[in-house]
Amino acid sequence: MADYLKDSEIMDYNTSRIQEKALEISLNSKNQFETIKNIYEFVRDEISHSLDINGQKVTFKASEVLDNVQGICFAKSNLLAAMLRFLGVPTGFCYQRLTHEGGYILHGLNAVFLDDKWYRLDARGNREDVNAQFSVGMEKLAFPVSKEGEIDYPEIYSKPVESVAAAFNGAETVKELMEKIPDRLIESST
């Protein structure tokens, strides 16, 4: 479980900006459930999904996402993980293979450990056709797997998979990044 609480170059929660924002958001939380919900809703609602705003700034590290107030799903999941890990909530990474523009694309989300159970959360950001919610009952993800060829990968990783991290290397625009995102999960180890 300790691996799901680690700081890293990507989830750089030792930066003061992440710590201050996490503490500010969780200040009035009555319990861990409320803390997770409040942090999740902040990342989902206050950090824009780059594609929704036609943003072209590529962010990946948690502090970059917070500073630029935007990122794609993988970047937003890094920020969510960093903030929750700083607050002592074990947080992992999950993936889905979804249909996209006539093919497939990998989508990133998180899982949090609460009351001895993992719950998946998708902080991608809502819009007219997306309604992700914090839920410890029935999952309310941004994109439920429903089409042929789509996959809900069951693993919960302690860090972003290498193929996703590699896609961000050298990508100068979000458009270029989207072309580099893998269409399936390649790694199978945590």
Results as ranks from 00 to 15, higher is better:
16 S>L: 15
139 E>S: 14
83 M>E: 09
151 I>Q: 03
97 R>A: 04
34 E>Y: 12
89 V>D: 04
98 L>F: 02
60 F>G: 00
4 Y>L: 07
50 S>C: 08
125 G>N: 08
93 F>W: 04
105 I>H: 02
176 E>N: 06
177 L>K: 03
142 A>P: 01
89 V>H: 02
135 S>I: 08
31 N>F: 12
139 E>K: 11
116 D>T: 07
13 Y>H: 09
168 F>M: 02
107 H>Y: 00
145 V>L: 04
20 E>Y: 12
22 A>M: 08
107 H>G: 03
74 F>G: 06
89 V>E: 01
115 D>A: 14
120 R>N: 05
25 I>R: 10
88 G>K: 07
82 A>N: 06
50 S>I: 02
147 K>M: 12
72 I>C: 00
173 T>L: 07
27 L>P: 06
83 M>V: 13
73 C>Y: 03
79 L>T: 13
113 F>L: 10
40 Y>D: 05
3 D>Q: 10
24 E>P: 03
85 R>G: 06
137 G>Q: 09
190 T>W: 11
185 L>A: 07
85 R>T: 08
58 V>Y: 02
49 H>D: 10
14 N>L: 11
113 F>D: 01
24 E>D: 15
149 G>Y: 05
136 V>M: 12
85 R>Y: 02
128 E>D: 15
112 V>E: 01
131 N>E: 13
186 I>K: 11
30 K>N: 14
155 E>C: 08
74 F>D: 00
83 M>H: 10
85 R>W: 05
121 L>V: 15
190 T>M: 03
148 E>T: 10
180 K>V: 07
8 S>E: 02
111 A>R: 01
112 V>N: 03
129 D>N: 15
127 R>F: 12
51 L>W: 11
156 I>V: 14
132 A>C: 09
9 E>P: 03
26 S>L: 09
83 M>Q: 08
23 L>P: 04
17 R>F: 11
55 G>M: 04
35 T>D: 07
109 L>E: 00
174 V>M: 05
131 N>C: 13
129 D>W: 13
56 Q>V: 06
31 N>I: 14
54 N>M: 12
154 P>V: 10
116 D>E: 15
97 R>P: 00
137 G>A: 13
13 Y>C: 03
159 K>T: 14
91 T>E: 06
184 R>P: 00
60 F>M: 06
174 V>P: 00
66 L>G: 04
135 S>D: 06
72 I>P: 00
98 L>A: 03
155 E>W: 09
188 S>R: 13
144 P>A: 03
